[in-house]
Amino acid sequence: MTAIPRISIENVTKRFGSQTVLDGVDLQIPQGQSLVIIGQSGCGKSVLIKHIIRLLTPDSGRIVVDGEDVSTIRSRNLPDFRRKFGMLFQGAALFDSMSVFDNIALGLREQRRHPEKKIREIVLEKIEMVGLSGSETKGPAELSGGMRKRVGLARAIAHDPEVMLYDEPTTGLDPVTADVINDLIVELNQKLHVTSVTVTHDMVSAFKIAERIVMLDNGKVAFDGTPDEVEQTSHPQVKGFMISSGIRGKH
């Protein structure tokens, strides 16, 4: 008997106008797995990840999380459903009008499960986890790209999610900062024992984070395997992607 996957993406198709971005994608993600989705820019990676948390809905097919079809969740139950997840956005998506502390505290305050004293404790703990102690009062405009990502990460994990979604966590960062973010993601995945889905076109990041790598091409799953299988594959698209990323030589 096979275990029910934590997240099941079943024949999902999504079009924007005349452009088909996802074309019958099928993907099962078991509990605790760290899955990385790679692919060229515009191949539908971010669109796919947004479907999981119902920021987008498929034109056909379905997303099932913990046995529940996401599109049938009633809007009043959506907040509770979404709190299972933590999401790091591509540009961190920090709220401009709030300090670092308030950005991280917002979700907890709105949840109204903890008193302000407990929220303060949690926020300071998360800020320390991402190595930004002392930056609580700064505004997003005062932070570098790497710091913004780290604040975004602290915000995403503030409510101890069961599933982490990372949208291009290292894009736009220098290699050293990107490595810091990769280490943080690995550490968080291990510490929090979460299921994680990462979307990236950074192969260095993919190899560091992934237990499994899926490649999207033209809206379809073109390759699905472990990092070792990716390294050894002769699949033309994956090979081409690795060569362009400088991970593999041309011969």
Binding site: L78, D80, F89, A93
Partner: peptide, 18 residues
């Protein structure tokens, strides 16, 4: 509009905030 294009509105929704 700025919040929309910088995904801040998506971020709010992802945190379970309407």
């Amino acid at each position: 509009g700025t919040m929309k294009v910088t995904e801040q509105i998506d971020a709010l929704e992802s945190m379970g905030i309407s």
